[in-house]
């Protein structure tokens, strides 16, 4: 087919496409590569889709409830005299340290809630959303229509990953903001005593809380990439979600078996709790940076695997 022939219908198309607008949009070249990186529209669409799913909203509600539970429990326990006994948070160490400080400063509920949700609730929500991202569209059949639109396989995968990361951030912020609200409501707030024992002003504490929330969201990147990869392997959204959650549980079990400490440094959960170092004065970045590096490595490996799989896969659903 010659250029001259193809130009005709397209020209006509340009005007027929938008009878309402006075100036027709620029005529697309018949076969020019149309802005490969016109990602904004698709990304916005992907975000709307993610957050309009009933499932995502339910997960966010559960996450928002966790700080409420912790806050109320601490409040009840302390109202009949005495401090908080040990073992308040599921994860020892920093978590417990934060919980015991809640009564004197509500801001600590933010740290305690993040420490409580990071081992399981937060990653589980991310595993569900990431696992469903591609496989769910495949099982609904919408994937084939996105691909003939044509969304482009690499482009779609990139947008999906970005949307899952956006969910990580929103999920973390949901926990943090809910905790902040509950903490301010039930407990006094004021200057913050860091783990190092040095007090910092309340504003500085708030800024640390925001920083920690960002780091926690970033900690979920590796898992998001794993979920996305699993999601490209199957055409069943449920199977992909279950597999990703299963992987998460397995890794958390491995992490808790001391005899396996040789493999621990390679697990994506290994440095998760290092975010507590951001509550030291001065800030201790080592663990946090190691964590973020680990997450980036996981994202690179599983992102590439997902790309390799998804760009060559037969879409038969």
């Amino acid at each position: 087919m010659s250029r001259a022939e193809t130009a005709g219908p397209v020209e006509k198309a340009g005007t027929a496409e938008s009878p309402a607008t006075a100036t027709p949009p620029p005529t697309p070249r018949p076969f020019g590569s149309p802005g490969l990186f016109r990602l904004a529209g698709l990304f916005r669409s992907e975000l709307t889709l993610t957050f309009r799913r009933w499932r995502s909203l339910a997960l966010l509600v559960v996450l928002a409830a966790v700080p409420v539970l912790i806050g109320v429990a601490v409040r009840i326990e302390t109202s009949d005299g005495g401090g908080v006994g040990g073992g308040g948070a599921p994860d020892g160490g920093a978590g417990v340290a934060f919980v015991s400080q809640i009564t004197s400063n509500g801001l600590f509920l933010v740290f305690a809630a993040l420490a409580a949700t990071l081992p399981f609730f937060l990653p589980m929500a991310v595993a569900v959303v990431a696992g469903d991202s591609v496989a769910g569209e495949a099982s609904a059949g919408t994937l084939r229509y996105l691909l003939v639109a044509p969304a482009g396989r690499a482009r779609l995968l990139l947008v999906k990953f970005a949307a899952v990361m956006a969910f990580c951030l929103v999920a973390t912020l949901t926990v943090a903001l809910s905790a902040l609200a509950v903490g301010a409501l039930l407990f006094p707030v004021g200057d913050v005593t860091t783990i190092s024992g040095v007090p910092v002003p309340f504003a500085e504490g708030l800024w640390r809380a925001a920083l920690i929330a960002a780091v926690v969201a970033g900690s979920l990147m590796g898992l998001a990439a794993i979920g996305l990869f699993v999601s490209t392997l199957t055409s069943s959204g449920i199977a992909a979600m279950a597999t990703t959650v299963g992987l998460l549980i397995t890794v958390q079990i491995l992490q808790s078996v001391p005899q396996l400490d040789a493999v621990h440094p390679y697990l994506f959960t290994h440095h998760w709790m290092s975010f507590a170092d951001l509550m030291r004065e001065p800030l201790l970045w080592d663990g946090v940076l190691r964590n973020l590096g680990r997450q980036a490595a996981y994202a690179a490996v599983f992102g590439s695997a997902a790309w390799a799989r998804f760009t060559t896969r037969d879409i038969t659903s």
Binding site: E17, S18, P25, P28, L36, L42, L156
Partner: peptide, 10 residues
Amino acid sequence: SADPAADPRT
């Protein structure tokens, strides 16, 4: 919006 060749304005 999945079609990168489609003009978002229209």
